[in-house]
Design a protein around this nucleic acid. Structure first.
Length: 547
RNA sequence: GCGAGUGUAGUGUAGCGGUAGCACAAAAGCUUCCCAAGCUUUUAACCCGGGUCCGAAUCCCGGCACUCGCACCA
C-alpha cells in the first residue's frame, strides 16, 4: 500500500519487529509482538478450519530437529552445501559444481575436488575471463550438534517430511482409504544467504503445509474445484488467462484435479484473511524452476509494495518422497488398493540350508550371502560353484485381491510470514485527505474482538466501562480496556491495529444502560444495550452483513 | 557472501570534533460528553568494540544490522 510504511507501523505498534534488537539484531529473524501474534494465531485458526472442513483431513505436529537419514532420503542433504566461487576481477559469483558440470565432467560434491578441477581445467569467469577465487561452502541447513562423536542433526528445512515418514500412521487413521490429507503448522529453517525484506525471506519461518495422498490411478480430490472465484493464471509458456480453478482444470491449464481443488481452497482462505484477489495470481513454474521432486508446480503470488511475492506453493511431488523413504529405510510405506480377485502363481525360492551345510560346512555363510545377493555363481577356492543347485523353486497358487502402490502426493504449502506481510500490505489503508492510517483486516483475524472505552476518565464512566470490560472477558471475548487520551486518539489507536469495534461508555450509558458501538471502517456508531454486546460482536449491525 | 550506501529516544528526523535538538507516540495532571484538539509536566536516544585526539554521535579501523544492486532461494 502506497504511502504506508508497513515495517515502521509494525515496529511501532508491536505487530512484528527484528529479533534480538538490544544485541544489535540477527538478520533473517523476526519476532511477532502482542498484536502480530494474535493476528497470526487467528490466521492459523482460519486456515485450519478451512482445511478441516474437508472432513478427510487430520493434523500432525512434529519435531523441528530432524533425523539425518530423513534428509538424506529427501534429497535435502545433498543440497546441504552450496559450493560457490567468485571471479577475482568482476566479482561475479558462480556455483562451482555448475561450472565443472558445464565442462562435461561428472561432479563430486567436495570442496577440494571442485577447487582442483577448476584449476586443472582452467575454468575462467564466463563474463570477463578473469581468474576464479577459492571455492567457498555455504551451509543451507542449520546443524545441531549432539555430541562429539555422533553425527550432527539438522533443523528441518520444511515441515513436509514428517508427513511422509509417518505415512503408515495416517493411512491407518483414515482406515486405509484415499484420498486423505495431513496438515501441519510449524517452523522451518533455512540458512538463507541474504535474508531480506522483513518477513519475506527469513531464516526461521512459519509454514502451514498440507500433504494430500492419492492413488495414482484415481488422482482426484473428493470435491470439485472452486468454480465461482476467478483469478489470473500465468502459464509456463507465459500465457495469462482469467479463470476459476475449475475452468483452469477443465481447459487443461492446471493438469491435476486436486491441485486445482487446493487452489480454490487457497483462494477462499486468502479472501477470508483479507488478501485482495485482484492482486493475486497463480504462476506456473517453468521447467528449469521445478524442484528436484516436482512435475507440476504452481505458486500463488501476491502483488505487494515489494512486487509479486510467492505466498503459497502447490507442488506435485509425485511419489518421490515415499519412494525414497522406502528405499532408504527398507520399511513398507505402501498403500494397497482392492483389485478383482485373481489366482496367481507365486514363485518362491527357498534356500536349501541342509545341502549347503553338508557340502561346505566351514564356509556356508559365503554361499548363503551370495544367494541372498541374487548371484548365480560363486568362486570358491578357484572352483566356480553353481548356486542354482542350492535353491529350490516352489510354485504356489494363491488368490490375490490387493495390490501395493506408492501414493502420489500433492502439497499445498502456505508461507505464513509472507501471508502476514501480504495481509498487512493489502489492508493498511490511508485516508488521502488526512493521512489517517487504519488496518482494514477482517473480523476473523482481528487481534482483539473489541476495545472498551469510557468517553472520559471520570464521572463513573470509567468504572462502568471497566465492569463491561470484565464481563466480556468472563464471556471469553478478547477485549481491551483503554481510558487514556482523547476518545479520538483511542479510536485511532485501535484502528491502526485492525480492531473492528470500539465500545464507548458515555453519559447516556449511565442512565439508559446502553453503549455506543463503533465500526472501524465506516466510523459509524449505533447505540445498543449492554446485554446485546456479545450478540453484535462479529456482526455488522450497520448493514446486516456479517464480517 | 561481494559491491555501494545508511545506522541518533518507541517512531520519524536535526546536529557531523566541545557529550544532543525537534515532531509524533507514551506517562501524570488540567481541559473537553465522540473521531489523532489544546495547555503544563515527565519519561526516553548517538548500533557494538577498538583507535586517533585535551576532547568522538561526528574522523579512522573492525564487527553487527538495514537498504539497493549482483549472486543464492531445495
Amino acid at each position: 500500500m502506497k504511502g504506508v510504511d508497513q515495517e515502521e507501523i509494525s515496529r511501532r505498534r508491536g505487530i512484528y519487529f527484528p529479533g534480538f534488537g538490544i544485541y544489535g539484531g540477527l538478520s533473517g529473524l523476526f519476532d511477532y509482538g502482542p498484536y502480530g501474534s494474535r493476528i497470526k494465531d487467528r490466521v492459523i485458526r482460519l486456515w485450519k478450519e478451512m482445511m478441516f472442513s474437508e472432513g478427510n483431513v487430520a493434523e500432525f505436529d512434529g519435531t523441528t530437529i530432524t533425523h539425518t537419514q530423513v534428509l538424506k532420503a529427501s534429497g535435502h542433504y545433498d543440497r546441504f552445501f552450496d559450493y560457490s566461487v567468485e571471479c577475482t576481477k568482476c566479482h561475479t559469483k558462480y556455483r562451482a559444481d555448475d561450472l565443472v558440470e558445464k565442462a562435461g565432467i561428472p561432479v563430486t560434491l567436495n570442496r577440494q575436488w571442485l577447487q582442483d578441477r577448476i584449476k586443472e581445467l582452467g575454468i575462467l569467469c564466463e563474463k570477463c575471463k578473469g581468474e576464479l577465487g577459492e571455492v567457498k561452502i555455504q551451509k543451507l541447513m542449520f546443524q545441531v550438534d549432539q555430541g562429539e562423536d555422533t553425527e550432527p542433526l539438522f533443523l528441518r528445512p520444511e515441515t513436509a517430511q514428517g508427513m511422509f515418514i509417518n505415512f503408515k500412521e495416517y493411512y491407518r487413521f483414515f482406515r486405509e482409504k484415499m484420498p486423505f490429507a495431513m496438515i501441519t503448522v510449524g517452523r522451518g529453517y533455512r540458512n538463507e544467504i541474504s535474508p531480506r525484506r522483513a518477513l519475506y525471506r527469513l531464516r526461521e519461518f512459519n509454514m502451514m503445509e498440507c500433504e494430500s495422498f492419492f492413488d495414482p490411478e484415481n488422482e482426484k480430490w473428493i470435491h470439485d474445484p472452486e468454480s465461482q472465484i476467478r483469478v489470473t493464471f500465468l502459464t509456463r509458456e507465459g500465457r495469462e488467462i482469467k479463470a476459476s480453478p475449475l475452468e483452469a482444470h477443465e481447459k487443461g491449464v492446471v493438469k491435476s484435479h486436486p491441485m486445482a481443488y487446493f487452489m480454490g481452497l487457497a483462494l477462499r482462505f486468502y479472501s477470508s484473511v483479507g488478501i485482495d484477489l485482484e492482486r493475486l495470481r497463480f504462476r506456473q513454474h517453468k521447467k528449469e524452476e521445478l524442484s528436484h521432486y516436482s512435475s507440476e508446480t504452481w505458486d500463488a503470488e501476491a502483488l505487494t509494495d515489494i512486487g509479486w511475492i510467492e505466498i503459497t506453493g502447490i507442488a506435485h511431488r509425485g511419489n518421490y518422497d515415499l519412494t525414497n523413504h522406502i528405499k532408504s529405510s527398507g520399511k513398507d510405506l505402501y498403500a494397497q488398493r482392492v483389485i478383482p480377485k485373481k489366482e496367481v502363481v507365486q514363485k518362491t525360492k527357498e534356500i536349501d540350508y541342509q545341502k549347503i551345510k553338508s557340502d561346505y560346512a566351514e564356509s556356508s555363510a559365503k554361499i548363503i550371502n551370495a544367494i541372498k545377493e541374487g548371484r548365480k555363481e560363486l568362486d570358491m577356492d578357484g572352483k566356480t560353484v553353481d548356486l542354482a543347485v542350492y535353491t529350490n523353486e516352489r510354485e504356489e497358487k494363491v488368490t490375490v485381491d490387493r495390490e501395493n502402490f506408492i501414493p502420489t502426493v500433492i502439497e499445498p504449502a502456505f508461507g505464513l510470514d509472507r501471508i502476514m506481510y501480504t495481509i498487512l500490505d493489502h489492508n493498511l489503508s490511508v485516508r488521502e485527505e488526512s493521512g489517517y492510517v487504519w488496518l482494514k483486516i477482517p473480523y476473523g483475524i482481528s487481534p482483539y474482538d473489541a476495545a472498551v472505552l469510557p468517553l472520559m476518565n471520570k464521572d463513573d464512566l470509567d468504572s462502568r466501562a471497566n465492569t463491561i470490560f470484565e464481563s466480556l472477558l468472563k464471556m471469553k471475548f478478547s477485549v481491551l480496556y483503554d481510558d487514556s487520551g482523547s476518545i479520538g486518539k483511542r479510536y485511532s489507536r485501535y484502528d491502526e491495529v485492525g480492531v473492528l469495534y470500539c465500545i464507548t461508555v458515555d453519559y447516556d450509558s449511565l442512565e439508559k444502560g446502553d453503549v455506543t458501538i463503533r465500526h472501524r471502517d465506516t466510523r459509524e456508531q449505533i447505540r445498543i444495550k449492554i446485554d446485546d454486546i456479545p450478540r453484535y460482536l462479529g456482526t455488522n449491525p450497520w448493514n446486516g452483513k456479517t464480517n
